[in-house]
């Protein structure tokens, strides 16, 4: 008697669980899975922006195809033979690795600082959240103004300090455009990194430090032997989150350095083809490649993460 009512309760719960999940699953299917599949489908057609349903299947032509000319020369076409695409891939990868590495280092340093005891700590914590809360577009504009070649405060400051001897067009110059994007991104996202690390630091029991202090261990050794290993799981999660974010960067580059070859990322070049140049299918191929790259990255991360975990157990 009791067992059967227990079972029906369990069934009832399972059934209601289904109904509770259904709206969310339908919604996610509509805005994520279906558009993703359609985008991938478009990449195998010659669909154009003005005629979304008139595309013909063209196989891998948007990715890579070749044609033999009468002279015997082979002409390669498609995204994978497009130097502009490989330039964007290189820009994105370079941006992601440099920005995330610097953010991780600065994030840990700021977290260590905020973990120390001092007056006004909560106000300081709120203050460093400001860059995170400012919309990316707004921070891009604020920095574009500060980095302005003629009236920018950065040029003025650097000239006064003697770091440069003439005004630099930071965002327009091909050599410094990427540096500008990196600086703004690091400024904007280090707070996120720092707060995650801080949460990790606060979970480290205090008596470990006291024991190390009693034993007279050098603070730098304490950091590398105790603190860093203990916050490593948190740090790794923060790094992967940031990495995935950095690989898809769009808005900062689009607004801070419009049309600069030195900074154009995969997202920017895809959107340019999709919407602005009316190469809808070609842009879809590029966005699908970006998706594939990120998927491979996530798979690798999970795989390496598991390997590492096993290593620790042994």
């Amino acid at each position: 008697m009791l067992a059967s009512s227990e079972l029906s309760l369990q069934q009832q719960r399972a059934r209601s669980a289904f109904w509770f999940l259904a709206p969310m699953l339908i919604m996610l299917f509509c805005v994520a899975a279906w558009p993703l599949l359609r985008s991938i489908y478009f990449s195998f057609t010659d669909t154009s922006l003005t005629d979304l349903y008139g595309g013909q299947w063209v196989g891998f032509d948007n990715y890579l195809s070749y044609r033999e000319l009468s002279s015997g020369r082979i002409l390669w076409r498609g995204t994978l033979a497009d130097p502009a695409w490989w330039n964007a891939v290189w820009n994105t990868v370079r941006f992601a690795f440099v920005s995330v590495s610097i953010e991780a280092i600065l994030g840990v340093l700021v977290a260590l600082l905020l973990n120390a005891e001092f007056k006004g700590r909560s106000i300081v914590r709120a203050a460093i959240l400001i860059p995170w809360a400012i919309p990316t577009i707004v921070s891009a504009k604020m920095w574009a103004w500060m980095l302005n070649d003629q009236f920018g405060i950065i040029n003025d400051l650097f000239l006064t300090l003697g770091l440069i001897d003439h005004k630099v067009a930071w965002t327009a110059n091909i050599d410094t455009a990427m540096i500008s994007v990196l600086v703004v991104d690091i400024w904007k996202t280090t707070p996120f990194m720092a707060l995650l690390c801080l949460a990790g630091l606060q979970m480290v029991p205090k008596d470990i430090y006291e024991a190390a202090k009693v034993d007279g261990v050098h603070p730098i050794k304490v950091f590398f032997k105790i603190t860093l290993p203990l916050i490593r799981p948190t740090l790794m999660v923060a790094i992967i989150f940031r990495m995935l974010d950095a690989l898809r960067i769009f808005d900062l580059v689009y607004v801070l350095t419009p049309n600069s070859k030195a900074t154009k990322t995969m997202s920017v070049i895809s959107r340019e083809n999709l919407i602005e140049f009316d190469k809808f299918a070609y842009g879809s191929a590029q966005s699908s490649l970006l998706f594939a790259i990120i998927a491979i990255f996530v798979a690798l991360y999970i795989w390496l993460g598991k390997l590492d975990l096993n290593g620790e157990k042994n």
């Binding site: 805005v31 279906w34 558009p35 359609r38 478009f42 898809r248 769009f250 970006l290 998706f291």
Partner: peptide, 26 residues
């Protein structure tokens, strides 16, 4: 698996769904 999928979707590059969403929105 469902939880992992949901977490995975939050890491989607938005550009990857842009073409499909554009079609849906239209």
């Amino acid at each position: 698996l469902l939880l992992m999928t949901i977490l995975g979707i939050s890491m989607f590059p938005q550009i990857a769904v842009l073409a499909g969403l554009f079609e849906l929105v239209r």
